[in-house]
């Protein structure tokens, strides 16, 4: 079948998609966006987390056909997404994306915070963790530790013991929410 949908703000088309393929497979193997990871293929680990029309989903559990005509954001689009939200608030232009829907933007605040806090070791959980953390900060600009734990409880990490991941989300929140939480009403909490 032919599949047409938006990925990271760009219209994408995939041909000869077998009906049994997951959204994850199409993103990774047909659209050249391997950022989303496959670590369990049954929705337990969160490594494949993407946004589908804004909602967090495990893309390994979404049949590719379900994405037809919809809007997907992957880790490759996080920086543009953050920029877009920031520009949206200040009335600026859309973020540019590269040929394959890959960011040409500087890192988003949550991406930068993961690097700075040492939240990346092997990095395999990182893409899914980032998409989930970004979504959290979008709806809650200053989450408590309990909020962060709840939001990331569907994302397994085997390297870090989660301490630096918590620190990274706190850091991104503390650095200010202006670039991150564009769609939520965050007046008074931005930096």
């Amino acid at each position: 079948m032919r599949l047409t949908f938006r990925v990271n703000g760009r219209q994408q088309q995939a041909d000869d998609v077998w009906e049994g393929e997951s959204l994850l497979y199409v993103l990774r193997e047909r659209l050249g966006l391997p950022g989303s990871k496959n670590a369990c293929e049954q929705g337990e680990c969160g490594s494949c987390t993407v946004r589908l029309d804004g909602l967090l989903v495990c893309s390994c559990l979404v049949a590719a056909g379900q994405a037809q005509g919809r809007d997907v954001v992957t880790v490759e689009g996080l920086a543009s997404q953050a920029k877009k939200r920031a520009d949206g608030r200040s009335g600026g232009a859309d973020g540019r994306t590269g040929k394959a829907g890959t960011d040409l933007q500087p890192l988003s605040p949550i991406q930068q915070a993961f690097i700075d806090a040492g939240a990346v070791q092997c990095g395999f959980c990182t893409p899914g963790m980032l998409v989930a953390a970004d979504e959290l900060l979008e709806r809650n600009a200053s989450p408590t530790d309990a909020d962060i734990r709840e939001a990331l409880s569907g994302n397994l990490c085997r390297c870090t013991g989660y301490q630096t991941i918590l620190a990274a989300v706190r850091l991104a929140a503390a650095r200010g929410t202006a670039d991150t939480a564009g769609t939520a009403d965050t007046a008074g909490t931005g930096g």
């Binding site: 992957t74 920086a79 890959t102 960011d103 890192l107 040492g118 990346v120 990095g123 893409p127």
Partner: peptide
Amino acid sequence: TLRPDGTLKVIGEFAYSSDLW
């Protein structure tokens, strides 16, 4: 000091063995 592979890992472009094509 920060990881030299950190940026690639957070933008999803670090090539794991399962990402090769």
